[in-house]
Simulated assay, not measured.
Amino acid sequence: MGRTVAVVGGGYGGAAVAKALDADADAGIEVVLVEPKDAFVHAAGSLRALVQPEWAENIFFPYDRLLARGRVVRGRAAGVDAGGVTLADGRRVEADYVVLATGSDYPFPAKADTDDAADALDQLRAAHKELSGAARVLITGAGPVGLELAGEIAAVWPGKRITVVDPAEEIMPSFTPELRAELHRQLDGLGVELRLGTALADPPPVPAGRADAFTVATTGGGEIGADIWFRCHGVRVNGGFLAGSLTPDAMTRQGQVRVTGTLQVRGYDNLYALGDLTDLAEAKMAGYAMKHAAVVAENVLAQVRGDRPGAVYRPSPVPSILLPLGPGGGVGQFPPESPGAAPALLPASTVAAYKGADLFVGRFAELFGTGTATATATEAGAATEAGTETEAGTA
């Protein structure tokens, strides 16, 4: 068959689809993974890495053992067409099929702003040093990222005063009242102060992640004093390189890619997209991106074998999440087992056992060949099925 598949982006979904296609030796596919970073960064563990720098190396996984037959091309995509991928340095990767999996960017510490793992590790260690000496911590954004960060900080430094600010009137509004009530209960127990329904009148006068005492006014007329702050909102889709590459109908105004139920790019037969880059009406979560990967892999394999792509992805109408609040706390919600039933709520002990204890690091060590065995993309996807929202980690 001798077909080439270029996967653009080696995050959660990209790594998973590349692994799945590469593992099918009978299909005769050459997988080329195009990725600017020198290592996969398990973003769901980045907040733990901030507060526990001795553990931080666990979230970095080199790509050199991901593929058994394919290859990894380190570089940044500058354009895509029906025949392959053009890189920013002018190199060209010819391909019969292209999978777009470039995900999104997010403020540090949830995601680093460097392609070099050593630099990213240095950033985490430097920020830890700044944070360790700060008595008062301000977090802007009470979504999963901000709340998880608050929980990680409180677990390591229970004496710090942590304030989380968000203009929304309620936390996690798309989830059940029972989950929100449990979140409030645990956050109160950790001493985390929620300032909802308000925002900062102006950005703090010091850079995020830098320890320096300051006071900021809020839109409600009050003030907040802190010694360090972190921004936990503001996801940015990495689709800018597609400008001029795809037809206008294939892109939204927000820069996302329109996909069909089979996750093919609208108007294209041999282009696929997954993860944060897509316009799918669901939360942007690592677990969902890996579910997308399974559908894309099945459909590409079908096309390579001369069949029509038949796997269809259907977003769940009920959101799922596993939100740790430190290694021993957190909340979780799964879709109901039967239509019309209430979502399944998970206690802190289950969240800790399933995710909070190691944040799935062991599963990804297996996936990337640094563990004792090699996990399939499906197994790793199951590990993150209700995992960290990619605004807290990544797709």
Rank of each mutant, 00 (worst) to 15 (best):
G90I: 00
L138P: 14
A112T: 03
R136A: 08
G83D: 15
R92V: 05
A135E: 15
Y97V: 05
D116R: 10
V80F: 08
D64H: 12
T102H: 01
L124Q: 12
T140Y: 07
R125C: 08
T114S: 09
H128Y: 14
A77E: 01
R91H: 09
V137C: 13
R136E: 08
L121C: 03
A95E: 09
V73D: 00
K129C: 11
D96Y: 06
P109H: 11
R71Q: 12
E130W: 07
D113Y: 02
A95K: 15
G103Q: 03
R92Y: 06
L131D: 09
D113Q: 13
G90K: 02
R71T: 11
Y63H: 03
D89N: 08
D115Y: 01
L66Q: 05
G70Q: 06
A77T: 05
L124D: 05
R125E: 12
A127P: 13
L124F: 15
A95N: 11
R91Y: 03
T86S: 15
V80S: 08
G70Y: 10
G75M: 07
V80Y: 03
T114E: 07
A117K: 14
V137P: 04
L138A: 15
A117G: 10
G75K: 12
V99S: 10
D119A: 14
D115V: 00
V73Y: 02
R69T: 04
